[in-house]
Each structure stands twice: as C-alpha cells, then as structure tokens.
Design a protein around this nucleic acid. Structure first.
Lengths: 340, 340
DNA sequence: GATTGGCACTCGAGCGAAATGAGTGCTAAC
DNA sequence: GTTAGCACTCATTTCGCTCGAGTGCCAATC
C-alpha cells in the first residue's frame, strides 16, 4: 500500500536522481522539497516504496534510486509531459523548414532530436506502402542492366539496378517507360506491383521478362529497402552518460549500430501508433539493452505511410522532457511530410 | 644519431606496444626478439631513440612507448604494408559485390572497412564533378514546385525540389524534359550547367525562368550536396579503445559526428591522391583529434570523380594492417564504381 | 668504440588498517 | 501517523607500507 504522499516521494526521487546521479537521501528530500514532515517519515515512505520494488538502495546505508518498475510508474502516472512552448516549436520549424528533400528532412530531424534530448536519436525511414507512384524512370546502364528510379508522391526517390534476362536498347526502354507510367502512375505502390503482374500477359513476349523483373523489384521496393533503413545521431551523448551503465557501453553501442536489432525493437513498440511509447530497462532485455530506455513515437508521411522515430539513453534520463521532444518532433515531421 | 639497430628497436617497440598496450621494457625486447645483444645494449639504443624524441617513458622507471614522431617514422620508413591475400580480396568482393546501388555500395564499404580494421570507418560520397548526365527527370509536385531527379552514369541519383517563379503544367514539363535531355545528356555535369545557361536565351520567354532555375540547381548539385556527405560506422570500436585516450573519448566522438570537421580533414589529406596518407596524433590538433590517427585513401568513381575513405582510431593502432585494408578497399571500390 | 654485467635508484601498483561520515533501521515517545 | 534519538552499516578516503619492474650509470670486457 503506497500512500499518495509516497508517490510524491517517488516522483522527487526520480527527479532528483535524474538531475544529480546521486542516490537520494531522506534528508535531502525534506530539505529541498516542502513536504512538511520529518526525514524519519520520509524514511517510512521509502520503506514502503522499497517494499513495492519501486526504489532500491545500492548499498545498505545509502540513499535510494528508482528501479525500472519505479521509472515505469513514474512515466505512466507521475510524469507530466509539458507541451513545447511556441518558441521551441518555432525553433523546430526553422531548423527543419530549410530542408530540400526527404533525405535531408530526416537527416536534420535526427540531429535535432539528439540535440533536444541530449540522447542518441533514431529515425526510421517512412514506409512507402501507402505512397503513390508519381513516375517511374528507366535508364539503361548496360545491355542487360537497367537502373530503375521510382519517384513517389511524397518526393521520395528509390533506385535499383535491374539485371535483365535479355538485351534491351533505348527504343525498347522508351516504350517501356511510356507504357509502364501509363499503367501505374497514381497507384499506391502495393497496387502498382500487382497491376504490373496482371498486365504482364498483355505485353509482347519480348517485353515480359522485363516487366516481370520490374514488377518484382517494385514489389520489393515497397518496404524491404526503406523500412530497414535507420538514421542515428548523437552517439557521443551515450559516452557522456557512460557512468549510468554498469559495465561498458560497448555492447550498447554495438547493439545500436546493428540496425536490425533496433528495427525489431521499433516494430514491437509500434502498438501505440501515434502517441509516445516508452520501453524501460529490462523491458528491452531481449535486445541487449537492459540498462537503456527507448522512447518512440510514430509519424506519418503523406497518405498514411507510417514509421517511427525516437531516442535511446540510459534508464536514468529526463523522461518528461524527452517524451515532449519526441512527441513534438514526430508531430511536426508528420505535418511536414504530409503537406507535399 | 640513431643506428640501424636502433630503428629495429623502434619497430619492435611500436609493434609490441600496439599489441599489448604495455610500455615496452628492454628485457622483454631481448626475450621476444632475437637481437643477439643484451638488455643493457638495448637500453643504450632506447636512450638514443629517446634523445630523438621517437619514444618516451610514461614515468621514470617504466618501459617506453612511441611518440607521435616515433609512429610517423614507423609509418614512413619501417612499416611494411603487406598486400591483402587473395582470400581477403575475395572476401571484400563477395561482401561488396551484392550491392544494388551506389548508396548500398558505400554503406557496405563503410561497414566492411570498420570490420577489417576494428576502427571507426569513414567514407565520403564521390564527387559528381566529372560524372556525366545520363538522364534528367522532372516531376511536378505542385503548381510551382518541381522535383528534379538527376541520374548520372555511375548510377548515382540526385534529387532536389525546385521552387519555380511561374506555374507549369504537365505538358510544359514534358517539353522541358525532352528538350533538356537532348541538350545535356552525355555531358559532364559541370559542362551541362554551363550549356543550360547558354541555351536559356534560345528558349521561349515563358521557359526561361524554369531553365535558369534548373541550371542553377544543376550547378549546385555538382558538388555542394554530395561531397558534404559522409558515412560512418564502427563508433563502438572507439569505445573499445577508450583507454588509449588520456581523457574521455567524448570530444573525439563529438568531432567525428561533426561532419564538417572530418570533411576539412579529408580535404587536407587529399594531397596524396590515390596512395594511403596518414595523419598522426598532434598533426590533427587543429581538428580536436590530437590523440587520434587518420588513414585515408582517395578512390575514384567513373570518369575520375574523386573522393576519400579511411579509418580513424587512437594513435596506438596497427598501421600496417589498417593501411593495407584502406588501400585494398579503396582500390576495389574504385574498380566497382568505375565499371558501370 | 661497442657491449655487457652489476648495482643503486625511482616510482607506480597493490595492500591493509584506520578514520570518516553519510544514511539508514529501529524503537520508544508523542 | 509522526518524530527524535541512537546504534549500526558500509562505501570512500587516506595513509603508510612493501614489492618489484625497469631504468641509468659505471666499470670491466671484447
């Protein structure tokens, strides 16, 4: 049974510990915060919190630090995510507003997020699954090699080398370009791939292998390439917070550089689509990140294409501020990519 | 005056110290290497080397470690850069050979290089200055907004949003596409921009502002965007070698994430175009990397477009192996990008 | 002149004892 | 339910000490 004052105590323990990295003592609590009770009373509350495994003492006679469970309760019930001030929004806008293309937007976003939170920032490339085909271009680079360039309505450009089963020349490529564009322009990518497969039969025999190859590549482009890409910035911040990890941060950095791991993690956190979702400490054990917390939020590109962005840092982090930053950046990015 | 044996002593000091991170003692030298002289003699040689500031003693009674100057001499005159074995070459080929486009090639290259050297690897995007235009594509994304996509003969794709001074429709864009492609296809990028400027007058008045805008953007695309981009991998390796830096590695990581710094450094090292050039310790002082060494090599994309790649790590690194790796990867990459 | 054995000297690393002090847990009183 | 008081714990710091690796130097030797 934790009283409501005990929860207040938990809150100040989390806040003080995050600010100072020192285990929080009962005495410092009564000195810094006006609880109107004595240190001994706070100690009783602390005993109750420890009973519930919300805080723990690193050694017998020392202050307390929050456990993963304590942070979880803090995030779920105690943290107030203060909305960003207009000034802060303005700063985001001016920083991201100068971007020239999607790549640039995302590169700026990840840097911005790392600066706002002083943590490692991560941005997943938006899925193209619901984007629509704006134009398909083919450029021959060799007799049996075609560079396909796919341009979508959010301005994203995907390229791919296609190995062809038969020789083609400029004329054939020209026909191909005209016919295929007529066929798929305006269609969502998923449908476009399907349409191509269907249409394959209606083309002359010599075209078919080419069409099939293109259709296959188109299908792959929908998700495979894009969603597997991840931008990272602010690795230096992880070094700065080195002392918050019991061992070396080496395995952590390794896990982060292994994009596959993070993409899985992002995938699991996708339940809460557009709100900020938080995964704390041992909740990330399966990913080798049991001393780290990850905050992510979904964001939408034009047409509903969904991806995630977020930050990663030690469990001892400023959740209030970071959740606010992740939310604000995700929202602004959604607006920016939705506009075109 | 350093005798030729003294230089041998320097070599083994560098090699042993790199391998063990322990200051190297005269006794260990005579034990591990067959010099045929006593420890006292080695000590005399060491005294001579210390006189020349090629080695130094961390404290009065301890073995010696190489100074920056010592490493420099080692690299210039003592290191043998053993060429990669066919097996190693094969490994490089199979790893890079699977790539689907230029972006992918570079992403794989940087990972490969970091794995081969166990250091932070860096790859600069190739300049497009000597690449030739294969195709220019325009896609309207709004009445006054055009997405330009530039495809070069090395398969690199550059995109850019152009803000137009006047409305355009699909028909105009179609004409534009046809005319411009006729005009610039096959030209090196630099010439293409110039050609556009010249041709501007010959177009109808309504076209001119569009042409000018495109020409301007083309000109910018030549270098501005590309050469400023840098891929990095293996930051975790820096953490592994933390103990080789006197203070924290935080400032080092920070400098690395600040791409501008590295690009300047790359620029200064560009004197030796295709060989491996090495910058050691305090030689990098101006970049905040006075405890790090950087090895780079130029590589060429099709048509002579030049860029650099390399690795960065503590001054205490295996120069022989790393120089070999940088050289081998640069050569293979040049071949791969030159082919198409 | 180069090499070597011998020896004194230096200085960091490692160890244990002791002092310090912050912070708790408990109990009895309010 | 709250509080003051007090004993107890334990990480941290400091000091002195020893140990030993490694050097510098010198005189003897090749």
């Amino acid at each position: 049974m934790v009283s409501s004052r005990s929860l207040e105590v938990l809150r100040v323990i989390v806040q003080d510990y995050v600010a100072s990295r020192e285990p929080v003592a009962s005495k410092t609590i009564v000195e810094k915060h006006a609880f109107g009770v004595s240190a001994a009373t706070i100690r009783n509350d602390m005993a109750a919190l420890e009973e519930e495994e919300l805080i723990t003492a690193p050694h017998t006679s020392s202050g307390r630090v929050p456990t993963d469970k304590g942070y979880r309760l803090f995030v779920d019930r105690l943290a107030e995510v203060k909305p960003f001030t207009p000034a802060q929004r303005k700063a985001i806008e001016t920083f991201l507003g100068q971007s020239v293309d999607v790549d640039d937007v995302l590169a700026r976003t990840v840097r911005l997020l790392s600066q706002l939170t002083h943590q490692v920032a991560l941005v997943q490339y938006p899925s193209l699954s619901t984007a629509k085909v704006r134009h398909v271009e083919f450029v021959p680079v060799a007799a049996r090699r075609l560079l396909s360039v796919l341009i979508t309505d959010i301005g994203a450009v995907e390229q791919r080398i296609i190995e062809l089963p038969a020789d083609v020349d400029d004329i054939i490529v020209g026909e191909l370009r005209a016919k295929l564009n007529g066929l798929v322009a305006g269609l969502p990518l998923v449908d476009a791939a399907a349409a191509l497969c269907d249409a394959s039969e209606r083309f002359s025999l010599s075209f078919r292998p080419v069409i099939d190859a293109v259709a296959r590549v188109l299908g792959e482009q929908v998700d495979a390439n894009r969603q597997e890409r991840l931008l990272m910035a602010g690795a230096a911040n992880l070094v700065r917070t080195e002392h918050d990890f019991s061992g070396s941060i080496y395995p952590v950095l390794e896990a982060i550089e292994e994009q596959v791991i993070l993409l899985k993690l992002f995938g699991e956190m996708a339940t809460d689509q557009l709100g900020v979702s938080v995964s704390i400490g041992r909740e990330n054990e399966a990913f080798g990140l049991s001393e780290a917390s990850v905050l992510t939020s979904g964001y939408t590109a034009s047409g509903g294409g969904l991806a995630r962005l977020g930050v990663l840092g030690p469990t001892r982090m400023d959740y209030s501020n970071n959740m606010a930053a992740v939310r604000a950046v995700a929202r602004y990015l959604s607006r920016l990519l939705g506009e075109n």
